[in-house]
Simulated scan of single mutants.
Amino acid sequence: MLAKMTSKNQLTLPKSVTEAVGAGPYFEVEARNGQIILTPVRIQRADAVRAKLAELDLTEQDVADAVAWAREHVDSPRGKQ
């Protein structure tokens, strides 16, 4: 299958290809041995982060406390080691 690159370095991937790999809106792109490798990537959404926090039994207050603690210590001599 051919895909033509536009003058703005854009490609349109054939629908049959994206359907075959379950592609989303983002791809990891790498060059390997003269080939361009596109790998579909799923970006984790905030809901996934919240689910992980719940799994770890961390509350929003725990996160806020950790951020406050880190901000206090980044400016201290111990934080600049």
Score class of each variant (00 low, 15 high):
1 M>K: 11
2 L>Q: 10
2 L>H: 09
3 A>Y: 02
4 K>T: 13
5 M>D: 10
5 M>P: 07
6 T>C: 09
9 N>A: 14
10 Q>K: 12
10 Q>H: 12
11 L>A: 06
11 L>G: 05
12 T>D: 04
13 L>R: 07
15 K>G: 01
15 K>V: 10
16 S>I: 09
16 S>L: 06
16 S>R: 10
17 V>G: 00
18 T>Y: 04
19 E>Q: 14
19 E>A: 14
21 V>K: 04
21 V>T: 04
21 V>D: 01
23 A>V: 04
24 G>I: 03
24 G>Q: 10
26 Y>K: 08
29 V>E: 06
32 R>G: 00
32 R>N: 07
33 N>A: 09
33 N>G: 05
34 G>L: 01
34 G>V: 00
35 Q>Y: 09
36 I>A: 03
37 I>N: 07
37 I>R: 05
38 L>C: 02
39 T>C: 02
40 P>N: 06
41 V>Y: 06
41 V>I: 10
42 R>E: 10
42 R>Q: 11
44 Q>A: 14
44 Q>N: 15
45 R>P: 00
46 A>F: 07
46 A>Q: 08
46 A>N: 05
47 D>K: 11
47 D>A: 15
48 A>I: 03
48 A>M: 09
50 R>M: 06
51 A>R: 09
51 A>H: 03
51 A>S: 12
53 L>C: 04
55 E>Q: 15
55 E>T: 12
56 L>S: 02
57 D>C: 03
58 L>Y: 13
58 L>R: 09
58 L>M: 14
59 T>Y: 04
60 E>N: 14
61 Q>G: 00
64 A>D: 13
65 D>V: 05
66 A>I: 01
69 W>T: 06
70 A>M: 12
70 A>L: 15
71 R>F: 13
71 R>D: 15
71 R>M: 15
71 R>L: 15
72 E>G: 10
73 H>T: 03
73 H>P: 00
75 D>V: 12
75 D>I: 08
77 P>N: 07
77 P>Q: 07
77 P>T: 08
79 G>M: 08
80 K>T: 06
80 K>H: 07
81 Q>N: 12
